[in-house]
């Protein structure tokens, strides 16, 4: 198992949103998270990525297993596409950025400053970052926002190739990517309405 989650409860701003989550990802597996807006998909992904502590339960994964991509791409407008990507490659200690550029059809834009890219191109660059992290589990939050049909196809191909290499992916999305993947509706794990953890002592 690359990632396994047991009886996890997560909170947004201290208020529990999801509880009793259990799932596991083996190499080559993808799990699509579904659920209405505000159901806690982003919170779940942030918790799995280690950005916030879980309220309860356990997340079993190697400390350097998860690559996280959120709504914000973390791009620097004054750096070129190559520079942005090279930076992340060096931070994660991987070398070659050419495959990542190729996978998202960014070669022609390589020397353009990220600030001059369109929203969809920025998104592609943000997703190309995943390839240079060299990490096996992708935790993606609405990865297809502002992508056109062709770019969604590129993204789906990249995920498929990643799974074929023995990786895994946890994707929150509303559109059909055409992936062979399990679907998981987080709404079934909606936490019963109760007070924020920090408020409990005061009730």
């Amino acid at each position: 198992m690359l990632l396994s989650v047991h009886d996890l409860a997560v909170a947004r701003g201290g208020v529990p949103v999801l509880e009793g989550l259990s799932f596991a990802l083996a190499p080559g597996e993808a799990l699509i998270l579904r659920g209405p807006n505000g159901s806690g998909k982003t919170t779940l992904l942030r918790t799995v990525a280690g950005l916030q502590p879980p309220l309860a339960g356990r997340i079993d994964a190697a400390s350097d297993a998860i690559a996280y991509a959120a709504h914000a791409d973390g791009l620097k407008a004054t750096l070129t596409v190559t520079e942005n990507l090279t930076f992340w490659a060096r931070v994660f200690g991987t070398g070659d950025i050419a495959p990542a550029l190729a996978a998202f059809a960014l070669e022609d834009l390589a020397d353009r400053p990220a600030g001059a890219l369109s929203a969809g191109q920025k998104r592609r660059l943000g997703l190309a970052r995943l390839l240079v992290t060299g990490r096996p589990v992708w935790a993606l939050d609405e990865p297809t926002v502002s992508l056109d049909t062709a770019a969604v196809g590129l993204f789906a191909d990249a995920v498929r190739a990643h799974l074929a290499r023995g990786g895994a992916a946890l994707i929150a999305t509303h559109i059909d990517l055409g992936l062979e993947a399990r679907h998981f509706d987080v709404a079934v794990c909606k936490a019963s309405p109760r007070a924020a953890a920090e408020d409990e002592a005061f009730l």
Binding site: A49, G50, L51, D64, I66, A67, Y68, A69, A70, H71, A72, D73, G74, L75, K76, W88, V91, F92, G93, R129, T133
Partner: peptide
């Protein structure tokens, strides 16, 4: 600046 464009989140999950 890193906080606003999301790099800080990404850096926090990096091996640094």
């Amino acid at each position: 600046l890193d906080w606003e464009d999301g790099s800080l989140d990404l850096l926090a999950t990096a091996p640094l």
